[in-house]
Design a protein around this nucleic acid. Sequence first.
DNA 1: TTTGCCGGGTA
DNA 2: TACCCGGCAAA
Length: 499
Amino acid sequence: MMNSKRLLDMSAVGIRLGGASKQAGIDQHAEGSKGRKITVSATADSGVILACKNGPATGAVFYKFVLDDGSLRECTRQDTVLNVNDLSSGREKYHLNKAGCGGEADERNSGLTGILTNGSPTHGLIRKGQKADKHMHSEARDPLVPSGCQATNGQQVPPEERYPHPSSQIPVPRRRKPSGLADKEVMAATVLTSLSTSPLVLTHTQTASAAVPEPASRGWKEVLSTSYSSSTSGNWSWDTSDQSVPSTPSPPLSNETSKSFLLSSQSDNVIDDVKESTHFLFEDPIPRKRKNSVKVMLKCLWKNCEKVLSTSSGIQRHIRTVHLGRNCDSDYSDGEEDFYYSEIEVNMDSLSEGLSSLTPTSPTTTGPPPIFPPFSHAAFVPRSEPAHIVMRGPQGHAPSLLSQSAPSTLCHIRTDHAYQGPLTHIRTVSFGEKRQPAPHTHTTICKTPPFTAPLPKPAPGIRKPRGEAKKCRKVYGMEKRDMWCTACRWKKACQRFTD
DNA sequence: TTTGCCGGGTA
DNA sequence: TACCCGGCAAA
């Protein structure tokens, strides 16, 4: 089975919607089309999850729709023609000329064309909070049959596409179309439209579907290009696996990038994974530099594992070796592995700014992570787990990884102005500090939790012990005094490097 | 000597 | 209230 699978190199997936072309790519090292599994899942505001795949042997293409109410809708894309062109390059083309599976394709959906170069074992998009079924419905379909829900109607497919390469044709299962399902199917098709026009849907809860629409030109293209540009092998998964974790509305940038991309190879149970999510799996993504120099890191989602690596290959290797117990000698994948990892963003600008004097440490470093100032410059833009990223215990307990150690931007803002404004919320998270509140550090005390007894004021003239942490003066030096926290600049107790 | 920051002064 | 700084004390 291992050998029957191919290494996949995805580099170009093209999705064209209504003529607007969005390229994303999947390339692969073709090893023939047999045994190929393709699963595509997608969700959108409409609350529909769409998934499709072609059977391992038959190459049939199936689609599954999970509706908001949890019901599962299965169908085959009758209007789908799967062709495999250019076997030498291992590319296949999937043309979804119409989204509607029921033959009542909405015109809005017509023209939807997805080009998936060659079989990626699994592709998945699962909407946050959506539970997807683990098994895909399958039906055989004649690949030569043109699109249209009438599986046998192929008039919509150009000849060259209908008869690409004899061996490359993958039969598309004829769609069974129960009456009354047409609407839902159309809606599913609409999902694709939504996906291509609003990547935000992937990160929002169902109720947050009213996300700010983005120009279609940014949809897939940006999302995909953001995550990877070159590829080697593997699966790609689009993951919103963090549905269980509420997230603060993100700025456009975050929205777009907060989608987690997880590796997920093969398996018919892709959608049934732990996180109930599917993922796009990319190999060696070259994270596009985003605004604010946000660097995308990949965090392992296996339980009790917070490994963060910078490349998908690395994270794959990590998962393969550590969690799957496989040989780590190569990146070889038999396509039967499930990789679960999510993207996290690291704001390199902020990081470098706040830690300019500190030794930069690669996120992939296995050693102890640097201890960041508790609330200084934010380095992380929490993508999926904002909660645990934001709050942090007293300094000194450096979490094992960035995701736990880096403060959020929010904290950063609050902290840096702590001394200037009403010091309301600042110290609330500084619980456990050993330093005593200065008599005139005012507000600091009143912000302790209600149940906390008032801290005794130090006797006049008694200074609180000097902290051990480096203060802004030491960290930044006099030459960078402008980088000091306000308190330090005023020769007050440092608010940034609290003890 | 350097550093942290209290306490007080000024605008 | 924001900002600045003299000066003390710990490192």
